[in-house]
């Protein structure tokens, strides 16, 4: 580099330093514009995001804590049936010894609805062949990674009452 070049280089560097201390009008305006643009975009996107993720109940399914399934004698030992628990599918199974077990019927694998097949296969999912133990809900074969979620069962005056775990029977309205 010639001495002229060096001098010019130094001058430029001095300029840069000055610029570093005082933000230039251009930089300031660019940054402000950028901020406003980002703010504007978020303001435009946010309502649409909320619109799309809003979970509105289109069909009047209400929060249900318990359902009555009718007389205990309707479900023979060694059988099971699917029923509606609020907005969710559920499953009740009666052991050969007469005890009832109820579960959230949503397979823990990929969300299909399970069913009680027979004594040999127990609770079974038709989608990917997962199996669960009917008396515990434990995943015993196939792809399911977790046991089925349990529901409480009580027989009140001969009627099967299925309720959410932890809900005591005395202080809730029993729906049919």
């Amino acid at each position: 580099m010639s001495s002229d070049d060096l001098a010019q280089h130094d001058a430029l560097q001095a300029d840069d330093k000055l610029m570093a201390q005082v933000v230039s009008r251009r930089t300031f305006l660019k940054a402000t514009l950028g901020l406003f643009a980002a703010g504007w975009v978020s303001m435009m996107v946010y309502p649409f995001f909320r619109y799309l993720t809003s979970s509105v109940k289109l069909s009047g399914a209400e929060e249900v804590t318990s359902v009555s399934l009718g007389g205990a004698e309707t479900l023979a030992p060694g059988t099971g049936k699917n029923f509606q628990f609020g907005s969710k599918p559920a499953l009740i199974v009666r052991d050969t010894d007469g005890t009832f077990h109820a579960y959230d019927a949503m397979c823990t694998h990929l969300g299909c609805t399970v069913q009680f097949k027979d004594a040999k296969d127990g609770i079974w999912c038709a989608c990917h062949g997962g199996k669960y133990d009917p008396s515990t809900g434990k995943n015993i074969a196939g792809p399911p990674p977790k046991p089925l979620a349990k529901l409480d069962v009580a027989v009140v005056e001969g009627n099967i009452i299925v309720s959410k775990p932890g809900v005591t029977l005395s202080n809730k309205a029993v729906e049919s």
Partner: peptide
């Protein structure tokens, strides 16, 4: 039927 079990052979 959203509350029925998945049909066999699905």
């Amino acid at each position: 039927d959203p509350f029925a079990a998945a049909p066999a052979g699905i």
